[in-house]
């Protein structure tokens, strides 16, 4: 099956070049001395210095991190509950509406989510700011958490939970001691996904934020609207570096775990024999 073919090698090479070259160029040009971003004028870390002296960016970054932390944490709790209700809840009144509402934000255009939430906040007389952005982000990212968690919940062996209940655990104990450890990897990746989505969101935040709560994407967007800027290149490089380290570490960790699991299984088989 794994015939070496020039066609496959070419499409992989071109494909990955297409995916990675633009980001690589961004990283390289963030170290450019010149203010003109298309002319190379020698290596410099000048723009990183400018970036860290720019109070506005630092403030926006701090606000964004707080919003992302709170919204992803609440979204993880709510999304896990929603997934549990859908996979384990059996039949209950309004189930169809519930599952529709849980998954709809996945396909809802961001402009509509943002618009509708702003209309709600204004209708309630709430001042827009960090609180409203956090509520908005929680609502759209809990759908992603639910998807990730429910796929894990629906594949694991239910008899483990039943055994715990039979042995006298309360439903909450069974969840905490049996279910939660098993679905933990999915809950963690759900949280990370929600966190990333919140960090990254421009459209919903533009609608639901107010004075004093400008998030980083809004700041970046208004800066790049006027054209390419070396400071934004520096900022992008930092973000790309963080994501790369995170994803590579996570995938190495899962790989190591898979190897360990395979080894344990093999030892288990030997033990039986």
């Amino acid at each position: 099956m794994n015939r070496f073919s020039w066609f496959n090698v070419t499409s992989l090479t071109l494909g990955f070049a297409f995916l990675y070259l633009p980001m690589l160029i961004l990283v390289i040009y963030s170290f450019n001395e010149s203010k003109l971003v298309t002319v190379w004028a020698g290596f410099s870390t000048r723009w990183y210095g400018e970036l860290f002296r720019n109070e506005e960016f630092l403030d926006a970054a701090w606000i964004t991190l707080q919003v992302a932390f709170y919204s992803s944490t609440i979204a993880t709790v709510l999304g896990t509950m929603a997934a549990y209700a859908l996979v384990r809840g059996g039949r209950f009144r309004g189930r169809t509406l519930f599952s529709g509402m849980v998954y709809a934000p996945l396909v809802m255009p961001e402009v509509i989510t943002g618009l509708s939430l702003l209309l709600l906040f204004i209708g309630l007389g709430m001042a827009t700011g960090m609180l409203t952005v956090t509520l908005a982000h929680t609502t759209f990212s809990m759908a992603y958490v639910s998807v990730v968690v429910s796929s894990r919940l629906s594949t694991f062996d239910r008899s483990l939970e039943e055994a715990a209940l039979d042995l006298g655990a309360s439903p909450f104990e069974a969840f905490r001691l049996v279910t939660l450890p098993i679905i933990a990897p999915a809950v963690i990746s759900g949280w990370l996904l929600a966190f990333t989505l919140s960090l990254d969101d421009l459209v919903i935040a533009s609608f639901t934020t107010g004075p004093g709560a400008t998030t980083l994407p809004i700041k970046v967007f208004s800066a790049v609207r006027l054209g390419v800027s070396p400071e934004i290149n520096a900022l992008s490089t930092i973000l790309i570096a963080i994501v790369t380290v995170g994803v590579v570490t996570a995938s190495l960790a899962t790989k190591r775990q898979a190897i360990r699991q395979a080894r344990e299984e093999k030892m288990g088989e030997r033990g039986v024999a």
């Binding site: 633009p22 970046v220 290149n233 994501v243």
Partner: peptide
């Protein structure tokens, strides 16, 4: 790339 900021990936093409 999916975990990398969408805004940044679009911005990369401007230059």
């Amino acid at each position: 790339p999916f975990w990398t900021s969408f805004l940044i990936r679009v911005y990369a093409w401007m230059g």
